[in-house]
Design a protein around this nucleic acid. Sequence first.
DNA 1: TAAATAACAGAATTCGATTTATGTAACTTA
DNA 2: TAAGTTACATAAATCGAATTCTGTTATTTA
Lengths: 212, 212
Amino acid sequence: MTPRPPRLPPDEQRDAIIDAARKLLAEQGHDRLRVVSVANELGMSHANVYRFFPSREALMDAIVESWLAYSRAEVKEIATRSEPPLNRLRAIVLSMHRNAKRRFREEPNVSELYEHLHGRRAESARQHIALLYGLGRELLREAAETGELAVKDLDAALRLVHAATAKFTTPRLIRESLDEDTMTQLSQVLDALLLAFRTDPELLERSHPDAR
Amino acid sequence: MTPRPPRLPPDEQRDAIIDAARKLLAEQGHDRLRVVSVANELGMSHANVYRFFPSREALMDAIVESWLAYSRAEVKEIATRSEPPLNRLRAIVLSMHRNAKRRFREEPNVSELYEHLHGRRAESARQHIALLYGLGRELLREAAETGELAVKDLDAALRLVHAATAKFTTPRLIRESLDEDTMTQLSQVLDALLLAFRTDPELLERSHPDAR
DNA sequence: TAAATAACAGAATTCGATTTATGTAACTTA
DNA sequence: TAAGTTACATAAATCGAATTCTGTTATTTA
């Protein structure tokens, strides 16, 4: 009998499972990741993993979730700086993109998992996007209060930022443009949008005839 | 023996093959499309199909190619209107998007094939995009000549339009937004970009520090 | 002699049998 | 009695054999 390792408190055990899963993920890719393998890695039965995660999908979601924490921290720091709100909004979008790109380079398998979950609208991805939207809404509100904006419909403005930056936030498109200078492109797209927000009060009023 | 149908001239036969393939494609999807089935449909041997198309891929490319002809015609018509060049540019991008969306609704299987070929950078898709780029370049040049533009680097401007409209030109993203009013969104994105092109001479001069 | 086919090799796909994995529930142990 | 395992049913992935398909070449037909 091998001596059993000391029992860990639940949270640490949960984290240990995530770490083991992350390690296997980095080696094998998400479609090769097996709950059984994660359990073996830790010397436990796979049934025990299910005491911490309701499903394999939930475990994968947790990996991505923990992995996005760093980006979230940076974004929140930017949000609280003492700069004009539109500058912070700009900095946040750029930061998200820079981090996404870095992750694609450094941890391609985790990035592919994120891409996969994003496509399936998993909780981690949904939450990640919701955070951005929330911060964006708040910053636009601040900007509107200080009179920086010519446009009135802040939700429409936010949707427009989202639409125009799809190339820089959609996992697959990020992956395809790793070699381009997308930071400059994104920066210029944001400049154009913010300029229009500041100077064209009619921008969001014109809706196109054949809407569909 | 069934009486053999009268022999067609080469071009018409080529078209007949494309039509038959298109019909099967609509029924079964591109991954189920078999060269043998197309030949059977026309009562010929599959080897004969290869007298007109060097490969299955080339046949699929030809389907998409013929299918894009309508959009191209409309775009070219817009390009020759007697309107300011930037208006025509705007109208062209909108027209492309409207047609793409309509096709996704009306012929989902052909659209999926286009999506597939687009991902593989096939000739039909490459050409389609090249056309847009060419027209865009020409229209920006005209606009620059009549002094409508504040920016100087026309290729950079074009790249920016391409980047900011990715959501409206990437097949998968179009498919995912069939229910949204993307015509209005696209229209507004273009307004913002063109406004910036017209009024901010520095827009394309600022490159972002960490380019990558 | 141009148009078409039959015949073929190698690639890709399908199919059914087998194995492996997921998720649950009953059971064991410290 | 909470932490963990064994045992199990169902779902999913894997594998090898058989089939079908692609693309080429030699042959036939009008």
